[in-house]
């Protein structure tokens, strides 16, 4: 049976969006999103909340989350499902994500068309781990990510070199999320 989406579609979508906006403007800071949501496995609350608040008929979504999650996203977000990751505005990876280079990075004139990649990981925590610098960060933010795909830091450096083109990443761990906009520099601590 299909579980409900946001109990209050207007105010809960606003709260989820503000969490993403805070995360995107302060990379590496952890925000909470999607309390009360019960999306079908393997969707996590935070990733479900991000898609419910941002995806709709105008944004093709690609995901690897299986049939239950597909039915849930189609019903609640109404987003068309992209056949390949490159065609998607939002890409949700519950398992091994497609490589960053396989996603739409936008064009030099329209870098805003670059995709948003949601990666579900085991845990994210502030204070230790990766060293993040760039716009939105006063000195340095540190972010510990458990379950980050292998070779992500190297792939990220290549993504960042494309600026202003590029892919933006939102890391989701249960009801926590942190964002990595394309401007952020990542160094392994």
């Amino acid at each position: 049976m299909l579980t409900p989406g946001f109990a209050d579609p207007v105010l809960h979508a606003q709260a989820a969006f503000r969490a993403v906006l805070d995360a995107m403007s302060r990379p590496g800071r952890v925000q909470l999103a999607g309390p009360g949501l019960a999306p079908p496995a393997p969707l996590m609350r935070a990733s479900a909340a991000v898609l419910l608040s941002l995806a709709d008929a105008a944004t093709p979504v690609w995901h690897d989350a299986g049939a239950d999650a597909d039915a849930w996203l189609r019903f609640h977000a109404g987003a068309p499902v992209a056949t390949t990751p490159r065609d998607a505005a939002f890409v949700l990876a519950t398992g091994a994500p497609p490589t960053l280079a396989a996603l739409d990075a936008g064009t030099e004139e329209e870098p805003e068309r670059g995709a948003t990649l949601l990666i579900q990981v085991e845990a994210i925590e502030e204070g230790t781990g990766l060293r993040l610098t760039g716009p939105g960060i006063e000195h340095e933010h540190r972010l510990l990510v458990r379950g980050l795909p292998d070779g992500f830091v190297a792939a990220w450096a290549a993504n960042r070199a494309l600026f202003p083109r590029g892919v933006d990443v939102i890391l989701c761990a249960w009801d926590r999320l942190a964002a990595l906009p394309r401007t952020v520099a990542i160094a392994e601590g």
């Binding site: 969006f17 995107m24 944004t59 870098p111 805003e112 670059g114 948003t116 939105g136 401007t183």
Partner: peptide, 17 residues
């Protein structure tokens, strides 16, 4: 609002664009 929110997030990701 969703359209505006997506636009705002990309604007933050590409500062000044």
């Amino acid at each position: 609002k969703r359209m505006l929110r997506r636009t705002i997030l990309k604007a933050v990701a590409v500062p000044g664009h």
